[in-house]
Computed example of a mutant assay.
Amino acid sequence: MNFLIDAQLPPALARAIASEGHDASHVCDLDMTSAPDLEVWNEALRRGAAIVTKDEDFILLGRASSGTEVPAVVWIRIGNCARKALLAAVMPILPTIVEMLDGGETVIEIR
Rank of each mutant, 00 (worst) to 15 (best):
L13T: 08
I93G: 04
A44W: 00
M1D: 11
W41G: 02
A64D: 15
G62N: 05
R63D: 15
W75T: 07
S65E: 07
L45E: 01
P10S: 15
E105V: 12
G104Y: 10
V74D: 09
G104K: 09
A7I: 15
I17V: 13
I51Q: 00
C81K: 12
P11H: 15
D29N: 14
P10W: 05
T96Q: 11
L87H: 06
I97C: 04
E69Y: 06
D102S: 06
I110M: 08
P92R: 05
N2T: 02
E105T: 10
I78Y: 07
V52C: 00
E99R: 11
T33E: 14
A49K: 00
R15D: 15
I108G: 06
K54Q: 13
V40R: 00
V27S: 04
G103M: 02
R63T: 14
N2I: 07
A64T: 15
A89D: 02
M32T: 06
W41P: 08
M32Q: 07
S66L: 14
A44Q: 00
G62H: 00
G48L: 09
T96Y: 04
A24H: 03
D29S: 12
S65P: 13
I76P: 01
L38S: 10
V70C: 09
F3K: 00
A35L: 05
I59N: 08
V98D: 11
N80G: 09
L87F: 08
R47C: 01
A85D: 12
T68M: 14
V74F: 02
L87Y: 11
V98G: 10
G48F: 02
L87D: 07
V73D: 03
L9M: 13
T33L: 14
S65H: 09
D6K: 00
L60D: 15
W75Y: 11
I108T: 05
L30N: 09
